[in-house]
Amino acid sequence: MPDPNQSGRATLGLMEPSQTWPAVVFDIGGVLTTSEGGVPELSRVIGVEPERFAGPYWEYRTDYDRGTLPTEYWPLVAAELGLTWSDEELERIDLFDARRWSDLAPGRTELLTALQTGGVTTALLSNAPSSMARVVKASGWSAGFDHRIFSCDLGLIKPDAKIYQAVEDTLGRPGEQLVFFDDRPPNIEAARERGWQAHLWTGPEACCEVLISLGLPTP
């Protein structure tokens, strides 16, 4: 499966990936960036209590991550809240939601730099709507990844086995040659069922311990 978002690491002057090293695959929200919920921040933006906002925000999120448009998702959320948003308000809310992924959390830059300059193949695998995917693709921190794989582009979401198969096809590697970090146990379990070396994310320090055990470069 071709990857239209391949970054072209050779143009960055990086080392060629070692054929003996596994590839390292990262989730984004709650792993590379801060907590993915965003409910408290967004509820303040629209003036709704977090407890009231959380229900509709997540109720329609699965289809949004599969690729439905912002103009389909946000009106459903608004209707559940008894609100009506103009096109301008919808765009502002959607952009605020997406921009939460524009910056890495502390310690992540050093981790990724060590892997990528060391010649390790790296990839992103995230359940993400189109708006968030665009923000990540435009962010400087994502340029070093060999592959950036988003649920909205495939019409598939974790923990569907087909999305892991798509990653294997894109990277040209079997599951046992993939190391994966995600913050959700169901996604980890599904990856392990395909033979991936999958680990629940608990922080950069624990991640480095795993990488060191595999002989991979770390900060």
Rank of each mutant, 00 (worst) to 15 (best):
L178E: 08
R184I: 04
T121I: 05
L115N: 09
D87Q: 11
L125M: 14
D153G: 10
E88N: 07
N187K: 09
S151R: 14
I157C: 14
R92N: 02
A79D: 12
Q177N: 13
A105W: 04
L111K: 04
V167H: 12
T117H: 13
T113A: 14
F180K: 09
Q177W: 13
G119E: 03
T109V: 07
Q165W: 06
L83S: 07
T170A: 15
E72K: 02
A78D: 00
R99S: 01
L125V: 07
F150N: 09
G82A: 09
L178W: 03
D97T: 09
Y164G: 10
L112Y: 07
G172T: 10
P186Q: 10
E89W: 03
G107F: 03
K162M: 04
V179P: 02
D169Q: 15
L125S: 10
V136D: 11
D160W: 01
A133Q: 09
E88L: 07
R100F: 00
K158A: 11
L111F: 10
N127Q: 08
T122N: 03
T71R: 14
G175T: 08
I157Q: 09
T109R: 15
A105E: 13
L171D: 08
P129L: 07
F180Y: 15
G155S: 10
S130K: 13
S130I: 11
F145R: 00
V135E: 05
F150C: 10
D94M: 05
P174M: 11
T109N: 13
T68L: 12
S151V: 08
K137E: 14
L124F: 10
E176I: 00
P174C: 10
L124S: 07
E91D: 10
S126N: 11
